[in-house]
């Protein structure tokens, strides 16, 4: 795009309030980046919810993430990365006025989006089949006031999770063996030992829970009136210092989980409070991937639109702003997935 050109005549796509094509292009791009910032902040809310639940209940996430299929997650990552590449190539083609390459690249990018969504649909279907779906209707882990809402589904789902975990454990052991990192048997032993440690901790934790949950009826009233007076109102500084460094349970458990190395946290390893929070992992998973999937769909719509315009010959080296902006949007969708993938599928 040349500025000189804009000075001499008035291109059709130059809006009246801009002086030059250059200024218009830069404004559009700046506006798009500002918009992308709002997208990042919006996803930031979900990442915050994720961080809070994972940070405070790491073993719950460690347990629950085994229900997700790393292979499909990685596959989708590759699909999105390749589609980002074709999009970037498309922008290049638009800059150079290579119309056919542009159309081809946009088509490939669009197909990448289709591929991503198909895999996502397969994954979602799997979640439905194994009762780990969004919402209260078909999630075996969903609980309210301390009661599982679908106790009948729980056994099958837990068994399914155990099976998946076992498969992964074998794969990991296999890799370790290949790399000569650990002796498999030794690893099994370590695993057992740490499980015993866990059991001890859980006994203590459960004893605590039992004391709290001893009341008949719903195990723990959520009514504020039942809070202990010390906890009613803001936790004063005195609270923090008087309770002589009693580390919160979550931290102890977190430390245990990280010390446990390759240990796969199993359903039995979780205490009763943690069991109640497994549902949260799936809800957060669905909120994050759902909102991301919605963005993929919007991106596909936009790509479809510029694909149509590109095929009609609307773009030239002097005017390719929409291609560039849609490209930025598509890359952002990719960027978010780059973070979602390790955070959801690769919890260690």
């Amino acid at each position: 795009m040349s500025t000189a050109n804009a000075d001499h005549d008035h291109p059709a796509h130059l809006a009246h309030h801009f002086d030059t094509v250059e200024q218009q292009f830069d404004s559009a791009k700046l506006g798009m980046w500002v918009f992308l910032a709002t997208e990042i902040l919006m996803f930031g809310g979900l990442f915050c919810a994720y961080a809070v639940y994972r940070g405070n209940h790491p073993e719950v996430f460690l347990y629950a993430h085994h229900f997700l299929d790393t292979f499909w997650g990685a596959f989708n990552t590759v699909v999105l990365l390749v589609s980002s590449f074709t999009m970037a190539w498309g922008v290049r083609a638009a800059q150079l006025g290579q119309k056919n390459i542009l159309v081809l690249m946009l088509l490939l990018t669009f197909l990448g989006g289709v591929g991503f969504m198909v895999v996502k649909a397969v994954e979602y279907y799997g979640k439905w089949e194994h009762a780990t779906f969004a919402g209260p209707w078909n999630n075996a882990f969903f609980n309210e006031d301390g009661q599982f809402v679908h106790p009948d589904k729980l056994e099958d789902t837990v068994a399914y999770g155990a099976k998946k975990m076992d498969k992964k454990a074998h794969a990991v052991a296999h890799v370790d063996e290949e790399l000569g990192l650990h002796d498999t048997d030794a690893e099994r032993l370590v695993e057992k030992e740490t499980q015993e440690e866990h059991a001890e901790q859980h006994e203590a934790a459960e004893a605590q829970d039992a004391a709290v949950a001893a009341a008949p009826g719903p195990p723990l009233p959520t009514d504020h009136s039942d809070f202990k007076p010390a906890h009613n109102g803001p936790g004063g500084l005195s609270d923090m210092f008087m309770e002589d460094g009693a580390a919160p349970e979550a931290f102890v458990a977190a430390a245990a989980a990280s010390a446990a190395g390759h240990t796969f946290v199993t359903w039995e390893d979780l205490d009763n409070r943690q069991k109640g929070l497994v549902s949260q992992f799936f809800q957060i998973y669905f909120m994050m991937t759902g909102l991301h999937g919605l963005h993929v769909l919007i991106g596909m719509g936009l790509i479809g639109w510029i694909l149509f315009r590109a095929a009609m010959g609307a773009f030239s080296p002097a005017y390719f702003t929409p291609v560039d902006l849609v490209g930025l949007y598509w890359h952002l969708v990719d960027l978010i997935w780059i973070f979602l993938f390790p955070l959801l599928y690769l919890i260690h």
């Binding site: 910032a37 709002t38 997208e39 990042i40 902040l41 919006m42 996803f43 930031g44 809310g45 979900l46 919810a49 639940y53 969004a134 919402g135 209260p136 969903f142 609980n143 309210e144 006031d145 959520t222 109640g276 929070l277 549902s279 949260q280 809800q283 957060i284 669905f286 909120m287 909102l291």
Partner: peptide, 29 residues
């Protein structure tokens, strides 16, 4: 920088009411 966080907060609240996601509701953990 702030309004998008309101957007996600309200979306989560709507999800809380329609899907019972249990991120904010203590009865759901």
């Amino acid at each position: 920088l702030a309004t998008p966080v309101l957007a996600i907060t309200l979306l989560l609240l709507i999800a809380e009411r329609t899907l019972n996601v249990g991120i904010f509701d203590p009865a759901l953990g």
